[in-house]
């Protein structure tokens, strides 16, 4: 299971980025089990990269290849399978269903390809301190709470790669470490890789490789 970046550069970026960046316009291969840290200041294309890897956008030059299949050749059905079975994500902007409860938001992901039984939702929610929010509509939860919902949601499915796009922006250190610990455990269970993009270095992520975007 490999995720490869081949000379990828967003079409809306100047070619200067290639000299400054350790990711854009490079050939990189991410393997299962790796912990990749991507340090990216604002405007360096962190979210773009995450969206490209997740197959949501394709405004880039170069290729992204998953298991020797180019994402550009994926059909809408292929993408559904890719996101359901192989790659999970925590969006920077979370993307929860505002009118659904926390429980429902997580369950919508879990039922698609259950890695855990339904009881696991409560267990994880309690571990991250939002056990009492399960029945609340997600739009009335605070941003920090919503961030934890998005994290739990991403852990409900099997995956080879877990993409994290500033997952702790609204969490204090204690909560962040707590959530990080959970994600590391879950990645280990699947022998999966984590690709963690954030503004700056975070000490509690035991990365195996680091790139500056």
């Amino acid at each position: 299971m490999q995720l490869q970046l081949q000379q990828v550069l967003p079409v809306y970026f100047d070619e200067d980025h290639r000299t400054q960046s350790e990711v854009w316009r490079r050939n990189l291969t991410f393997e299962k089990g790796e912990y990749i840290k991507i340090v990216a200041p604002s405007g360096s294309g962190k979210t773009s990269l995450m969206h490209f890897l997740y197959g949501m956008r394709n405004e880039y030059n170069g290729n992204i290849v998953y298991n020797s299949a180019n994402l550009r050749n994926y059909t809408p059905e292929d993408f559904a399978g890719y996101r359901k079975d192989h790659v999970s994500i925590v969006f920077q902007d979370l993307r929860l269903f505002p009118e659904q409860t926390v429980q429902e938001n997580i369950e919508l992901k879990r039922q698609l390809n259950p890695f855990h039984p339904a009881e696991k939702i409560r267990e994880m929610a309690e571990r991250l301190g939002i056990g009492n929010k399960l029945a609340s509509k997600s739009r009335i939860c605070s941003y920090g709470e919503q961030q934890r919902v998005a994290i739990i949601r991403s852990l409900m499915q099997p995956f080879d790669f877990l993409l994290l796009d500033e997952p702790f922006s609204h969490l204090d250190d204690k909560n962040s470490q707590n959530a990080m610990q959970l994600m590391l455990e879950e990645a280990k269970l699947r022998n999966a890789a984590i690709i963690f993009a954030d503004l700056e270095r975070i000490d509690w992520f035991p990365y195996t490789r680091i790139f500056h975007l």
Binding site: Y54, M56, P76, E77, F79, A80, G81, Y82, R83, K84, D85, R95, F97, L108, K109, L112, N113, Q157
Partner: peptide, 14 residues
Amino acid sequence: NLQLLLMMGYSPNW
């Protein structure tokens, strides 16, 4: 909502 479902991996055909 539909876009989010598709983004989560729901099959468009299904």
